[in-house]
Simulated assay, not measured.
Amino acid sequence: MTPTLVPHHPARDWAEIQERMLVPLYEAVYDHLGVGAGTRLFGLGCGSGLALLMAAARGARVAGADRDHARVALARERLPEGVTVTEEPPEDLPYDVITAFHATDGMLPGLRSLTRSAQPGAAVVLAGWGPSERCATEPVLRVAARLADHAPAPGPDLDALVAGAGLRPVGSGRVACPFGYAGEASAVRGLLSTGAFEEAVRATDLSQVEKEIEEALAPYVRPDGTVWMPNVFRYVVARVA
């Protein structure tokens, strides 16, 4: 199979292709918490701002932070004037809801610090991949681990993060978030934009990673050329003590 040589613009590809795949997750969490007028919401790891934009459309006052400079720049372009998006969270977090839709096990130290600065009773939402057997994208992500020569990383242990941060769990849910793409080229660009393949690209090269992603996508290419991968994501809601 000939690799798809596509422009590699991860932040813009995330904003234009991949970020919308998680809209069902954002909506489910906002419905669960009743996010609306009067809600003060902070997005930790807010990416290019789609989840914040959706909360703002419900009437919430929003702000966010993300360490990816390019994604922050895109978030500032698309969000309403006056919404603050920074590369580091502020020291004080006077918010009713704090979301981390892309939780990782490595975020525990930052989560502990966030918990200390959040107001008592604030809701903290952590989300990540659901069970691997219910995530069609999981075999594709194994390509990244193999090319980077390390064991596949499991999804984040959301319950352990909640406990380690000293939060009080109050609810959870699972949400179907299928990844659908117009074609293989779009799928490759979207998946590369997640950041999951960065080590693989450094260990080999971009064209090799693209080729192997395309091969792993083959079972999910439909007769019309579109790509469809059913996935389930899980979220946990906790409260600051």
Rank of each mutant, 00 (worst) to 15 (best):
V85T: 10
S48F: 01
E77P: 13
L53C: 02
D66H: 06
G45N: 08
R71P: 01
R40I: 07
A57P: 02
R67L: 08
A75P: 08
L79H: 04
V83I: 14
E88V: 06
A51K: 03
G43R: 03
R76I: 05
F42W: 13
L93F: 01
R71W: 07
L44A: 08
R76E: 12
A55F: 05
A75M: 10
T39S: 15
G36W: 11
L79N: 05
G47K: 04
V83E: 08
V72Q: 07
L44R: 05
G36N: 09
L93G: 04
L79C: 09
T39D: 10
G47S: 03
D92R: 15
T39L: 14
G34F: 06
L50D: 02
E87N: 14
G64H: 13
R78M: 10
G34D: 02
R58P: 07
G45E: 12
A60P: 08
A37E: 07
A51S: 12
E88C: 01
T84M: 12
A70T: 03
L52G: 00
D68Y: 14
A56G: 04
D68M: 12
T86Q: 12
A65C: 13
G59E: 05
G47V: 00
E87I: 08
R67Y: 03
A65G: 07
A56W: 02
V62L: 11
H69R: 05
G59I: 01
E81A: 15
T39Y: 05
P80L: 12
V83C: 09
D68V: 15
G64Q: 14
G47F: 07
R78C: 06
H69E: 14
E87R: 14
P89A: 02
G64F: 09
D92L: 14
R78Q: 13
L50S: 02
G38K: 03
M54R: 13
D92S: 14
D66S: 11
R40G: 05
V35R: 02
E77F: 11
C46R: 04
T86V: 12
A65V: 09
M54D: 09
A51V: 06
S48Q: 03
A37Q: 13
A57G: 09
G47R: 01
E77S: 15
G38S: 11
T39K: 07
E77V: 11
P80T: 04
G64L: 14
R61I: 06
V35I: 06
P80M: 03
T39G: 13
E81L: 15
